[in-house]
Design a protein around this nucleic acid. Structure first.
Lengths: 153, 153
DNA sequence: TATTGTTATACTCTATAACTATA
DNA sequence: TATAGTTATAGAGTATAACAATA
């Protein structure tokens, strides 16, 4: 790994001032996860958010968009785009909601279910790649800490 | 915390299908961190990335933009905008680089140094808020796991 | 009046391609 | 020929404001 003397050498740049800052560490780790996940889902026509939306619809048939927005922690306005894409792909339908005619009951199609199952397996493999080298206790510690930071539990 | 029966109730939405997926947990926790950090830095005219850039310039006087890009894990093109903003605020200067006239030697100004010190204290307080309730060993476990995911260590 | 889904819009983050001036 | 900084641009994520239909 020789490098020409005139080329940018980043090895002597100190980021110690940022390493004691959890947001910086999380952002950098998440960038790696995001890049691998994007590559994992792209061949199936999904992204992290459309995959997450599809998963929630599959697991919660009849889910309404506003519930989906809450579950994804995003605004209702943004969910419209995700559902549009899933609907255009033929994986999700906007069914009528008899109890509230303002709302829609989101359902996945047979094809949508199949795409989800395939994507889920790929995401599981991605997850194992990301956590490779970490012991079960360490993974549990991370999940606990993330839950605490998120304000759950 | 009473809620009208007709209002969106998200408590019965299951996201178990996503909770065993580290990217989802990281994203949600990072959203919380990001929101708090944005509110923390906004009064000082900084954002996460401009703060990070300022920190690296303060701690590495004479840093060149391409080194800054590597340290921040972003493309050179994006660094231009961050440095523009820090320069317009009067916190950073693009000094000449005698060894390589294509490059700039980034330096912080006296005011920039003062803004950084103030922001650093605010970020430390933010960090304590985020990690509140976690023991030192747990924080160490998170940082170790994040380093592993990021591919460092 | 308040809520649901929607549209329009804007800002941030990130990447790629192409340009210029240097090396 | 390759690199440093820059410009232009595009896509993704996120948020707010305002609207029509419905509660």
């Amino acid at each position: 790994m020789a490098r020409a003397a005139h080329q940018t050498d980043v090895s002597d740049v100190s980021d110690a001032c940022l390493r004691d800052f959890v947001g910086y560490n999380m952002k950098r780790a998440f960038n790696v996860v995001q890049a691998d996940l994007t590559a994992t889902l792209e061949p199936m026509g999904l992204r992290m958010l459309t995959y997450s939306a599809l998963a929630l619809i599959v697991e919660n048939p009849g889910l309404r968009p506003s519930q989906l927005a809450s579950a994804l922690s995003v605004e209702r306005a943004n969910v419209v785009v995700y559902v549009d894409q899933l609907e255009e792909a033929g994986w999700v339908t906007r069914g009528t909601c008899p109890q509230d005619r303002r709302a829609y009951a989101l359902q996945c199609t047979i094809v949508g279910r199949r795409v989800y199952d395939k994507a889920r397996a790929a995401v599981r493999a991605h997850d194992r790649r990301m956590l490779d080298g970490l012991r079960a206790v360490e993974i549990a510690a991370v999940n606990k800490a993330l839950a605490r930071i998120e304000g759950r539990e």
